[in-house]
Amino acid sequence: MQVYIGRFWGMKMRRSPQTSLVLAEFLGCQEEWRYGYDISRNTGLKSGTLYPILMRLAEHRLLETSWEMVVEGRPPRHMYKLTQDGLRYARAQVAAERVAVEGEPALAGVGGL
């Protein structure tokens, strides 16, 4: 079992502008659970781009997921939040992206950066 899971742990996260966008979005409100559609709307990413990124983050234990408690008349929603490791990774990633791509503090102010 460890070998099986270890195959994911052994992988490196792919750095992409889309991943950085998602991470920056999570850093915007670190303690809150976020919904997929809200993230998609705020980042401008399509569902087919956003969800594979979320899946990869979860595989690396950077993102935790939960189903919303059932409220009468409303179906439960899948919610996402960065783990402590995820927050650390997100801060580093967003900072690196800012330096490498923008060359200026474009994402300054996000997540206390």
């Binding site: 559609y37 569902s47 969800y51 899948h78």
Partner: peptide, 28 residues
Amino acid sequence: WVKGLAREVEFIGSDWSALGWAIGSMRV
């Protein structure tokens, strides 16, 4: 994950946005 993605459609106000969300999900 896809179940969570599909559930989101009920929280999208505009029908066209819901369709866009659904079409976008096909990549998954």
